Amino acid sequence: MASGLSETDQKELQSFIETEQAKARVQSSIHNFTDLCWDKCITGSIGSRFGRGEEACLSNCVARFLDSSMLIVKKLEEQRQQL
């Protein structure tokens, strides 16, 4: 790892890097789910309102997204605690 750092500093730096990488993975998932929900649900032209089916689809998609996000966060936290 980086020279000149104590073992404690190296571990702290490694933990920081892992946390930032986990944040980046979550952010990437958010972008992927946003794209997926939009592509799946928005089928008509964009107007001032969503269509009834589009609104329900987006709501369900977002709910599944939130469920998935919570699962990811929980798993990442479990992994972090194991370290």
Rank of each mutant, 00 (worst) to 15 (best):
A2V: 13
A2K: 15
A2T: 11
S3A: 10
S3T: 04
G4Y: 05
L5R: 09
L5I: 00
S6M: 03
S6N: 09
S6P: 08
E7V: 15
E7T: 14
T8W: 05
T8H: 13
D9G: 00
Q10V: 14
Q10W: 00
K11V: 05
E12I: 13
E12G: 00
E12Y: 02
L13C: 03
Q14M: 08
S15T: 12
S15N: 08
S15D: 10
S15H: 10
I17A: 02
I17K: 10
E18W: 00
T19L: 11
E20C: 01
Q21M: 09
A22I: 05
A22E: 11
A22S: 15
A24V: 03
R25Y: 03
V26I: 15
V26M: 07
Q27I: 04
S28Q: 15
S28L: 07
S28R: 03
S29E: 11
S29Y: 12
I30Y: 06
I30W: 01
I30A: 07
F33H: 08
F33A: 06
T34Y: 00
D35S: 09
L36T: 14
L36R: 13
L36K: 12
L36F: 12
C37K: 03
W38D: 02
W38K: 14
W38R: 14
D39P: 01
K40P: 02
C41L: 06
C41F: 04
C41V: 03
I42R: 13
I42Y: 03
I42L: 07
T43N: 09
T43H: 06
T43D: 04
G44D: 07
S45D: 08
S45R: 09
G47A: 12
S48R: 10
R49D: 09
R49F: 06
R49C: 08
R49T: 11
F50Y: 13
G51A: 10
G51H: 09
R52A: 14
G53N: 15
G53V: 05
E54R: 00
E55T: 03
E55V: 04
A56M: 11
A56Q: 12
A56S: 13
C57I: 10
L58E: 03
S59I: 02
S59C: 03
N60G: 15
V62H: 02
V62K: 05
A63F: 02
R64I: 00
R64V: 01
F65M: 13
L66Q: 13
D67P: 01
D67A: 07
S68R: 01
M70W: 07
M70R: 14
M70V: 04
L71R: 15
I72Y: 09
K74V: 04
K74D: 14
K75W: 04
L76P: 01
L76W: 01
L76Q: 15
E77C: 01
E77Y: 08
E77A: 08
E78T: 11
Q79H: 10
Q81V: 12
Q82S: 12
Q82F: 07
L83Y: 02
